[in-house]
């Protein structure tokens, strides 16, 4: 019983630890003071107004959104065929290929970013949108692949065979049976890919400029020399967006991160 109580107390403290910075950021963004203060002194949404009227923030936000959308699109275009090939075909070097395609998950992003910068400078692929995009595609594709692969189960294969048996061609089978059944994997893979791209700093930082910046990199640069409430407001907005995203996933496909007993 004592052990149980201790576990409970420790768990609640840990949860508080997890909540604390989020609370501080959101709280700090509401302060009326010119400097960041928590607990906030007075309550105002002025800092949000400041942020939403600041063209650099708006531009960075748009860049990030377009970049994340494009990276997600290409990740699906690359990840889906790769997943089908890995799950449905046998070929030499399959293990090697899936290790290659999944490895950006564990490799230091800063190294991938550096590599792309050096390689890109030789090709003229630096500090522009395509340069940002290729890097992001490389790091987010594994998310699509990883969430898709478990969906190609033997049971799924039997369903595809049943469809062929009933007279559907390979393509019709893909459209009517495979695709609807892997849709949850596609959706969650796409969401993970989008978010990973949207919050990336390590890779983007090599290829951003004053004119072409993403939201996280811009925040990163600001935060290093000033801590003012507008940064907290931007941060709070991204927390809010993330929360909306999570609740959406939870409602759409169920946030199956901790299985029920």
């Amino acid at each position: 019983m004592a052990a149980r109580l201790a576990v409970r107390a420790l768990a609640l403290l840990t949860l508080a630890y997890l909540a604390l910075p989020l609370v501080v950021v959101i709280g700090g963004s509401l302060t009326e003071t010119k400097f960041l203060s928590f607990p906030p002194q007075g309550l105002t949404l002025d800092w949000y107004r400041v942020v939403l009227h600041d063209p650099t923030y708006v531009r960075s936000f748009l860049t990030s959104a377009v970049l994340a959308l494009a990276a997600t699109f290409f990740a699906l275009v690359i990840g889906l065929p790769a997943a089908i090939a890995i799950a449905r075909h046998s070929f030499r070097g399959k293990g090697l290929l899936s290790a290659l395609l999944l490895s950006p998950l564990v490799l230091p992003h800063i190294v991938i970013g550096a590599a792309l910068l050096q390689y890109g400078s030789a090709l003229g692929l630096v500090r522009n949108f395509p340069a940002l995009l290729v890097g992001h595609v490389v790091i987010v594709t594994p998310f699509v692949l990883r969430t898709l692969l478990p969906h190609f189960s033997p049971g799924q294969r039997a369903l595809e065979e049943a469809s062929r048996d009933l007279g559907a061609s390979g393509w019709t089978t893909f459209r009517l049976v495979t695709l609807p059944l892997i849709r949850p994997g596609l959706v969650s893979g796409a969401i993970f890919a989008f978010i990973t791209s949207f919050i990336n700093v390590e890779l983007s930082i090599f290829n951003t400029t004053a004119a072409l910046n993403t939201i996280p990199v811009q925040l990163f640069n600001y935060v290093q020399y000033s801590v003012d409430p507008s940064i907290a407001a931007v941060s709070a907005l991204t927390i809010l967006a993330a929360a909306v995203g999570i609740v959406l996933i939870d409602l759409l496909i169920g946030l199956d991160l901790l299985p029920d007993k």
């Binding site: 919050i199 700093v201 939201i215 925040l219 935060v223 801590v227 941060s235 999570i246």
Partner: peptide, 12 residues
């Protein structure tokens, strides 16, 4: 789902 920046910023 939130950027490292935002998370670290809170701790700063």
């Amino acid at each position: 789902f939130t950027s490292n920046i935002v998370r670290s910023f809170g701790w700063m």
